[in-house]
Design a protein around this nucleic acid. Structure first.
Lengths: 151, 151
DNA sequence: TACAATTAAATTGTGCGCAATATGAATTGT
DNA sequence: ACAATTCATATTGCGCACAATTTAATTGTA
């Protein structure tokens, strides 16, 4: 049992496929997002806010599976750039509500070109892509369920 | 064209599926790798070394799609932990060759249990998983080709 | 009302991940 | 032979990502 098939081969790992695909996505996004002044995680936060504005940090974290340790500094950077405002909710002072500034709203227009450009890079097979996405999300949810069980 | 279908919906993004699946994998791996004293990227490096020992940093970087800015400090940490040795290649002083210590080789045994544990968490459908992995790798390679073209 | 438990953010510390740059060694061209 | 180029690695700086802890506000309950 020296090796060969103990499952420790890199090429066998589904996780590595996902891991390296994530990096590859980042490289495709970078030149598209740089002109907008956004990193990829910042872009995801903006997607959430463009769908629904004026939400607490908690909600953003739930949508993106990120915690306050990641979001607090990220949102402060977006605030520094003038894209969002951070204000305590008067009705519940524990919450910080995130709202788009006019600049943040306006950024949506140039951002519209991004998904098509990425789609072109993925060689989007339209229907096949939807199916692949669904399978990856199903995988993710099984992983979350499995790690959640351990708690 | 207020919104709805300009492609900026989070749920439409294949990239987000991959991004969040990557995080979910990390959460599953963490409790499995913690007892081994490895992070997930360190585990990937060890997978490479368990397949072929005594390789230059460059080769590890090519297999994992990582550069020296990531690998140099990571490998120093593995060296500090006594798992690898880093030595300049006498034949080509530019290269640093990475070799497993006896401890690094020995770590392979307890690591054998990891893939099966992760497989259980993914609800591995065996053949279906292989197919999904292949699709994700194909996607990744298209993305790499697309971002490489821009250079 | 008091007071424990819960909740939302923020903070601290560690480890990636990558761009940009630096350093020194090997290779190439003339 | 030697200058120019290329190459492998290291360094610096910034931005995630997350565990662990802290702070402050709210809720639940006796």
């Amino acid at each position: 049992m020296t090796d060969k098939d103990d499952g420790l081969k890199l090429d066998r790992q589904l996780c590595f496929a996902v891991y390296s695909a994530g990096h590859a996505f980042n490289r495709v996004y970078k030149p598209l997002l740089d002109p907008l002044g956004l990193t990829y995680p910042q872009y995801l936060v903006m997607l959430v806010l463009w769908e629904r504005d004026d939400v607490p940090v908690k909600i953003i974290g739930e949508r993106l599976h990120l915690d306050s340790g990641t979001l607090t500094p990220l949102l402060k950077r977006l605030e520094t750039q003038g894209l969002v405002m951070r204000e305590r909710d008067p009705g519940d002072e524990r919450q910080v509500r995130i709202r788009l500034t006019p600049e943040g709203q306006a950024l949506r227009e140039p951002a519209r070109a991004v998904p098509a450009a990425v789609g072109a890079a993925t060689g989007f097979a339209g229907e096949g892509m939807r199916e692949l996405k669904a399978q990856i999300l199903a995988l993710r949810d099984r992983l979350i369920a499995a790690s959640g069980d351990g708690d």
